[in-house]
Amino acid sequence: MVEGGVALRTESLSGHWGDFRLDAVDLQIGFGEYVVLLGPSGCGKTTLMELLCGLRRAGNGRVILDGVDLTHLAPRQRRVGYVPQDYDLFPTRSVEGNVRFAAAMRREHGEGVEERFERVVTMLRLKPLLDRGIETLSGGERQRVALARALMADPALLLLDEPVSALPESYRDSVCAELKQLHREFGLTTIHVCHNLEEALLVADRLVVMDVGRVAQVGEPDEVLDRPASRFVAEFMRCKNCWVAEVQGGELQANGFFLGPVDQPAGAYWAVVRPERLHVIPTVSSMLTGIVAARTRGPHALLARVDVGPLPVWVRDDSAAPVGTRVGVALTAGQVWLIPRED
């Protein structure tokens, strides 16, 4: 499942704190992988980060990094870099004091440290800021200082807790691109926590989707988008086509509309298909036709809602057929991903 060897492994990591409960988290993250931990607010993303870097004690389970069991080690022995959500820079120190903090605490001196300092500071464009106080920095500058501070500790795993949430919307994308660039440069195994789908899709090699207190699905972005493990994942990934469906006698019926034969056993399902996978086609060559009921602009394409009988289908539509016209839809039962449904 993970190419190039496992860097981080958690084994049924769990615990409860007050009202919050974390259920057995089993994760495997490869060397140099950029994984995005995605989930709604309050699902336990930050708790999981704190368990990994040692700021919180696990009730049960183990954390293994590079073959070393970290579970009972102090934070400073773990080589896990943590960049918290609001960066938590040290206000009593200058930018340089913040960046050099790790070396100062470990009493590291010499060329190795200076070389690393030089490289990190250049990479993050902090040279002109070194003498500044923390309170004079902008959000983006603070974030770069926090990153530099973590990188100076030479971590084996980097945890970024909502690294761009505190920044203005307009330059989140470019900062994300920078994070990826940095990741390539340092080849660091990275976990990036966020609650925003677009941000996650922009940077992730692999996604870990969390529901409250548990991991709902792990996979590459396309895999999670095309084949969500549960209705929660489908909704969280904002799949517009998620229908109540049934399979009877090998026939798939979604929202009361017969879509055709499928292999799944008879039962109740959620039927899911990404709008990006569907197209509008000329009515003559199509088995399914419907009326364009609405249109919207998706993240990467124009989308149209075509009402095929009782079934509202969101599709890609670059032809921009006006609302009210009849169009054909390329949709077969085989394209639909079925998730067992319990009522």
């Binding site: 400073r76 009593t92 605490m105």
Partner: peptide, 25 residues
């Protein structure tokens, strides 16, 4: 207190974290 925790992830002992972060602040 959180910054003291971050200091620990950066290699500070509990004492160092207290002295250089909490006490300093």
């Amino acid at each position: 207190r959180r910054r003291a925790g971050v200091a620990q992830t950066l290699g500070a002992s509990r004492w160092q974290a207290f002295l250089h972060v909490e006490f300093a602040e």
